[in-house]
Design a binder for these strands. Structure first.
Lengths: 205, 205
DNA sequence: TCCAAGGTATCACGGCTGTGATATAAAAAC
DNA sequence: GTTTTTATATCACAGCCGTGATACCTTGGA
């Protein structure tokens, strides 16, 4: 019974299955066969949508990037205009925005885990390098925009070098996310938010 | 010609070969065969020293932990008593100590790359979990001690919560190290040091 | 001198991997 | 109704993997 299933939907199902495998067993275990089994598909069917392993991996990584980017865009839009807010409220709003990159619930936790595995793999896998670079540039842009809006609203202490602060905050968020995913018994979601709030508070005072 | 080689030295050579493979091709490519080839050993010889793959991986990770821990200890000892130093000098010294965890030269760069791959693998590999946890606890202890000594010397601004600041600085260093290794075209060693100096400066002001 | 131990090397097995080729069948296009 | 496309499914192949078993040789000690 071909053709009755939307191929776009099928690809999404396969990518979701891949993510479940990566979260549960790591990227190394995400072979075509294990992903097909997780998606309840025959490997032949899977290869009808993704001819090679590299094609599947790149499509999955691209899908994840688009999903997170869309969520960040929605969060920024929902934040709206911060002209009406007090400095304290602006800082709290910024913390919530940055929290979209932290493993504060199961969904974000899974995302960070997948990104971590892909990032580590991208170091030695040329097929993933450009995508990993795209992630790094994207998060820097997002963090930089958060800081710019704070400064434009006069919420930041004067004399800050925004490029250095962007690098500092990006590294902080990445490090927090990684530690929270790798050592949840050491770093909880609450700890992450507290550290981010402390950091933003120090940038304001 | 058996017995003429120190088995301790042999194990060290194997571990060094493993690290070279991991840095060059990633942990996934570090099979018994590739490591044996890199060490110019027959796989049978390698298995005479490491019966199983898990034993080799755990020994390698443990060796790396001990090497870095020893270098950190030496750096702290060399730092000596900071009672005679000015606040500015104490901050610069602390930055140098934290720099031991950053990829500021080829050796440290290789270490961070290896740690990153092992950390990512430890998330889903039970055989490495305790070692990864040991690394996380160790770096937190090191960072915490750096902050304690600064505070004891009165170099830090009052009112800081040292536990939160330890988590913040640990995440910052981890994130910087990761980003510098994964995206050297985006984050150089100089950038790392500048960010760390900025952070310590903000803790002092 | 003989024996045990340490070190090197090779073979074989089952298992998993990505991938090419191919068969079958249903739906769509003409 | 015929043909073409889309989809599912299976087989086979070469390659790498960890590992068990084993053989051979050199050295140290009894």
């Amino acid at each position: 019974m071909p053709k009755i299933v939307d191929p776009v939907e099928r690809r999404r199902e396969v990518v979701d299955a891949l993510f479940r495998v990566v979260v549960r067993d790591g990227l190394q275990r995400a072979s075509l066969r294990t992903v097909a089994a997780e998606a309840r598909l025959n490997i032949g069917s899977l290869r009808h949508y993704f001819a090679t392993q590299e094609e599947l991996m790149r499509f999955a990584m691209t899908s994840m990037i688009e999903r997170v980017a869309e969520r960040l865009r929605a969060a920024v839009e929902e934040a709206g205009d911060l002209a009406v807010l007090s400095t304290r409220e602006r800082l709290e709003l910024s913390a919530r925005l940055l929290g979209e990159l932290l493993p504060l619930d199961e969904r974000r936790r899974a995302e960070v885990a997948v990104f971590l595995d892909f990032a580590a793999a991208s170091r030695t896998d040329p097929a993933l390098r450009d995508l990993a670079s795209q992630v790094a540039v994207g998060t820097r842009g997002f963090v930089g925009r958060v800081l710019e809006r704070l400064e434009a609203g006069g919420a930041l202490r004067p004399g800050l070098r925004l490029d250095v602060e962007t690098e500092r905050l990006s590294a902080l968020v990445d490090g927090l996310a990684m530690n929270a995913v790798l050592h949840p018994e050491l770093v909880s979601g609450g700890h992450c938010l507290e550290v981010v709030r402390t950091h933003l508070g120090a940038l304001a005072a």
